[in-house]
Amino acid sequence: MRAVEVDCVEHVYPDGTRALCGARLEVEEGESVAILGPNGSGKTTLILHLNGTLLPHEGEVRIFGESVSKKNLDWVRKTVGVVFQNSDDQLFMPTVFEDVAFGPLNVKPRKEALREAESAMEELGIMELRDRVPHFLSGGQKRLVAIAGVIAMKPKILVLDEPTIGLDSEARDKIIWVLSQLKKRYKLTLIFSTFDVEIVPLLADKVVVLKNGSVIYQGDVRRALTDTKLLREARLDQPPYVKLAEELGLNEKPLTLKEASALFSKIIKKE
C-alpha cells in the first residue's frame, strides 16, 4: 500500500518564495526514504506538508490514499509523526517523562499510557533522563527525547528533519541504531531529510533528491550515491568509500564500511 503520495505540490510562502514547485514522490508502506538536497531546496517545507503543518497551494498530499486537508488533520497527525529539526519546538513539558507521556495520556487510560511512555523511553535507552528538565539536556539527548515523544504515539509513518545534524559520533550512531531498530521491529515507514550521506545506505531503501523545490531524482540508493553528477547537483559529498574506490579506479563502489571491507579483503586475497 502507498503510505505517502506527494502529487504535484506547490507551496509559496507569504513573502512570495516558491519553496516547492510541482514536487512529486511516492513512498510505499514499510519503505525508508532519504530526502537529499542542498540548503533551501525545500526539504523542510516538504516535510511540513506530510503532517499538514503546511497545506499545499496546489496539488495534493495523500496519506494511505487520503488527501490531507483541514478536515482530517487529527487523523493525519496521529498517523504521521514528525520530529522537527529543532527539538526545542517539541519538548514543551517540564520534565522528560512528562513530555514523553504527554501524547499517550491524551488518548489512553493512565496506566496504559504511562507504560507506553516508559517503553518508548526504554526503546531509545533514555530511562536515566526520566526526571531531567529538557532545558538542561544536550542536543543529542533532546533529539532522543523528541523521538521518544513521537514514537510513544505509535505513528505508522515516522518523519525526521535532519535527525543527525549537530550530533557527535556517538549520539549519531545511537540515532542510526534506534531508527534501524524501529524499522525492523514495527512495519514503520521512515522518511528523513539529511546531508549525512553515510547514514543513507544504512537506513534508506530509496533516495529522493530535491532541487529548487522540485524532485530531480527518485529511486535506488546505490545509483544515487554513485552518480557524481547528481551528487554535485545536490551539493553532497560522495560517500567516503565510493570516493576511495573511484580514486583507485575500481568498478565496484562500496557504500558502507561492511561492503568496503568485503571488497578490499577480496582484493587482498587475490594478490
Binding site: 503543518t53 519546538d89 517539541q90 513539558m93 517523562f97 507521556a101 491524551n106 513521537v150
Partner: peptide
C-alpha cells in the same frame, strides 16, 4: 513561528485543551 510548531507538536500528540498529569 515557534508557537505554531509547538502547537502542531501538541495537537499531533493528541492535545485537546488540557495538559495531562503523569501523577495525579
Amino acid at each position: 513561528e515557534r508557537a505554531e510548531r509547538v502547537y502542531v507538536a501538541m495537537t499531533s500528540r493528541g492535545y485537546r485543551g488540557k495538559i495531562p498529569l503523569t501523577s495525579p
